[in-house]
Amino acid sequence: MSALEKFQRLGTTRSGPRRKRDNKAAYLFLLPWFAGLTVITAGPVVASFVLGFTDYNLIQAPEFNGLENVNRMLSDERLHRALGVTFLYVFVSVPLQLAAALGLAMLLDRGLRGLAFYRSAFYLPSLLGSSVAIAVLWRQIFGAEGLLNQVLDVVGITGRGWISDPDTALSTLIVLNVWTFGAPMVIFLAGLRQIPAMYYEAAAVDGANRWTQFRRITLPLLSPIIFFNLVLQIIHAFQSFTQAFVVSGGTGGPSDSTLFYTLYLYQRGFNNFDMGYASALAWLLLLIIAAFTAVNFWAAKRWVFYDD
């Protein structure tokens, strides 16, 4: 058999009654990824796992302390606080952000005058990223003398310092997250563009209205992308760090009301020279995120539609 034929046979995934494996081609395509995994990712990941069982202050050599770090987690009140804050944040901000992103993507996908302008306007906030300017900007809106209070003042309501009040600080961060819905919106837009036009043409011929088209065509065909955004936004929200760091100056304040999990982990590791415990905390977070992701993948079998 010639090399060419061999190569062609690699590609016959679905031709036989049983799928043939494409190991060679697959590993070839995955070569850069394998190299990255083994050379760059694996070492530090495993090292962080090992450090999770040590007392490591970054300056002196790590010392094994068995399950001491796990014990500490059980009685660490600030950790429990951080878990509460993070779960609340994930459960509220992810659905809100995704709904906003999908809704606007649908709206902006259609032949609308000024489309490019709106798309850019809605995306612009996401460009600011973790810029230091964010902290200052956010205060201009939600601060005691910010825009929101000025507006409320006109209607006769006395506002408060939304960012610095422990009762409302987390809500402003949720708003901040929703405000940067640009990223998932762009992914939705790209996904919408992949839906073949013929489906809609056929549906229109059949007299289906917009809502039916949305339910029967858009949702199922967009479901891989919705699923992607859901999985990634959950992972992302669990790891939320920068915005809380920038807005609270790294403290998670006021009164730990915005103490995100990773912010606490960072404080332990870098501010308190407690990298062993921080590593253990990181692996607990990994377990939590992995559990959520696994549930997501399991549930996906029921609602995500692939064309393969």
Binding site: G43, V46, A47
Partner: peptide, 21 residues
């Protein structure tokens, strides 16, 4: 893969220890 992962992890840990002293 598994072997090289392990050796790297050990290497990193050793480097950390070395770095420390």
């Amino acid at each position: 893969t598994r072997r090289s992962v392990l050796s790297l992890a050990v290497g990193t840990a050793a480097a950390a220890a070395l770095a420390a002293c």
